Deep mutational scan, measured.
Amino acid sequence: NKFNKEQQWATYEILNLPNLNEEQRKAFIDSLKDDPSQSANLLAEAKKLNDAQA
């Protein structure tokens, strides 16, 4: 299913963002699990935070 693929991709991407700390990473991944339909939005937020902390 589409959300499952998006969720897996977003999880992979978030795990590989270098500037997030473990707590932030875990929070994003927990949110992905809670609502896979928000995968794209959550990934965008994670990338923004990652860039802000660069």
Rank of each mutant, 00 (worst) to 15 (best):
S37M: 08
N21R: 12
P18A: 10
K26V: 08
S39L: 09
A10N: 03
Q38Y: 05
T11L: 15
L32F: 03
F28G: 00
P36A: 09
L43E: 01
A40G: 09
Q24N: 02
Q7K: 02
P18K: 07
S37P: 05
N50T: 01
L32W: 03
I14G: 01
K33R: 11
I29V: 07
Q53P: 04
Q53V: 07
A46S: 02
E13S: 07
K33D: 13
E6L: 12
L32G: 01
Q53K: 07
A44M: 09
L42Q: 07
N1Q: 04
N4E: 15
F3D: 15
D34Q: 14
N4P: 15
E6R: 01
N19F: 09
K5W: 04
W9P: 01
A40S: 08
I14F: 03
N16A: 07
A27H: 11
A46M: 01
S39G: 03
T11Y: 15
Y12Q: 14
D35G: 04
E6F: 13
N4A: 12
Q7W: 14
Q38D: 07
A46Y: 02
K33F: 15
N41P: 10
D30V: 08
A10Q: 02
E6W: 04
K26I: 09
F3N: 15
N4D: 15
A40I: 14
N16M: 10
E6T: 03
L43M: 06
T11P: 02
A52H: 11
T11N: 12
P36K: 03
K26L: 09
L49K: 05
L17F: 05
S31P: 02
E13R: 05
E23K: 11
Q8N: 03
S31T: 09
A40E: 06
E6P: 02
A46T: 00
P18H: 05
F28I: 04
D35E: 09
N50R: 01
K5I: 03
D34F: 14
K2Y: 10
N19V: 02
D34G: 08
N21D: 09
A10E: 02
Q24A: 03
N41A: 11
A52M: 10
A40Q: 10
A10P: 02
Y12P: 02
A54N: 10
D30W: 04
N41F: 09
Q7F: 15
A10D: 03
D35T: 09
K48D: 07
N19G: 05
N19A: 09
N19H: 12
N19M: 11
A27K: 06
D35H: 13
K47V: 13
A44K: 06
F28M: 05
Q7E: 15
L32E: 00
A46G: 02
F28Q: 00
S39V: 13
K2I: 15
L20D: 00
L43P: 00
D35F: 13
K26F: 09
A46R: 00
W9Y: 14
I14T: 01
A46F: 02
A27T: 09
A10W: 03
N4F: 14
P18T: 05
K5N: 14
T11G: 04
L32P: 00
K2M: 14
A46E: 00
E6V: 04
D34E: 13
Y12K: 06
K33T: 13
K26A: 11
N1D: 15
P36W: 06
I14R: 00
E22H: 10
D51V: 09
K33W: 14
K26E: 09
K48T: 10
Q38F: 04
I29S: 03
P36V: 03
L17R: 00
L49Q: 07
A54I: 05
N1I: 04
N21K: 08
N41D: 11
A40R: 13
Y12E: 15
Q7G: 06
F3Q: 15
N16R: 11
A54Q: 11
A27I: 12
D34I: 11
A44G: 09
S31D: 09
L42W: 09
N19R: 04
D34A: 11
P36I: 06
P18R: 05
P18V: 07
N19T: 04
W9F: 13
L42V: 14
N19Q: 05
L42E: 02
K5S: 14
N4L: 14
N4Q: 15
L49S: 03
A27N: 11
A54K: 12
K47A: 07
E13W: 12
N4H: 14
A54D: 06
E45G: 05
Q24R: 02
S31M: 10
R25P: 00
E45W: 05
S37I: 06
K48G: 04
K2V: 04
T11K: 08
D34M: 13
A44D: 09
L17W: 01
A40H: 09
E23M: 12
K2F: 07
D30M: 11
A54Y: 11
W9T: 08
P18S: 06
S39M: 05
Q38H: 06
E13P: 01
T11F: 15
L17M: 13
L49G: 01
D51E: 12
T11W: 15
K2Q: 15
I14P: 01
I29W: 04
Q7D: 11
D35M: 08
Q8W: 07
I14N: 01
W9I: 14
F3Y: 07
P18Q: 08
I29Q: 05
A54P: 08
S39P: 04
F28R: 00
N1Y: 00
L32T: 02
Q53D: 04
E45K: 10
L17P: 00
L49M: 10
E45Y: 06
E45T: 08
D51H: 07
Q7V: 15
S39W: 15
